[in-house]
């Protein structure tokens, strides 16, 4: 089963993912309604794409006071918009800050993996977003990336 992998070292901050996401989910180009956001630190030359990583045991699902969040058949953690009351408890608990508030609807929105074929991954020409089978190789590479960005060594 594939997972979404984010590689900040390859991200140039172009924001194409934000456009494609909002277009796919909302029908318009509007980065504030994109379920993936790029945090740009141009003074440091670092860009972080942030989106839901679809936890195995999602905290957002546990904190939701109306049980609006569950995992679908693709393994995506999804919000049942008809149940959401916009309390933002999920936004508060997500360890990645991946949930967004839709100010127009008064509800939270989040990545739903585009029903199994995430468009951001398809569109990102830099491979900063990948939709691939997780392997040991991938895990090792991710660790390298994080260590490089943070200049942090585990030894």
């Amino acid at each position: 089963m594939k997972i979404l992998i984010l590689n900040p070292d390859r991200c140039i901050g172009c924001g194409t993912c934000e456009m494609v996401c909002s277009l796919t989910n909302e029908g318009i180009f509007n980065p504030t309604l994109s379920r993936i956001n790029v945090f740009r630190y141009s003074d440091r030359g670092i860009n972080f794409p942030i989106t839901c990583l679809h936890c195995d045991d999602p905290l957002c699902s546990k904190i939701c006071p109306v049980d609006a969040i569950s995992k679908d058949e693709h393994g995506a953690v999804i919000v049942d918009q008809s149940r959401c009351v916009g309390c933002k408890a999920c936004m508060m608990i997500c360890p990645f800050g991946a949930i967004i508030f839709d100010i127009y609807r008064g509800e939270v929105i989040k990545c739903n993996l585009c029903s199994g074929e995430p468009k951001c991954a398809q569109t990102c020409v830099w491979d900063a977003i990948e939709w691939i089978e997780p392997t040991l190789e991938v895990a090792r590479k991710r660790r390298e990336v994080i260590e490089k960005i943070l200049h942090y060594s585990s030894t």
Binding site: C94, P95, F96, G97, F101
Partner: peptide
Amino acid sequence: EFRVAGILHT
């Protein structure tokens, strides 16, 4: 502030 809360909590 919302999005940083979960990170701080974790």
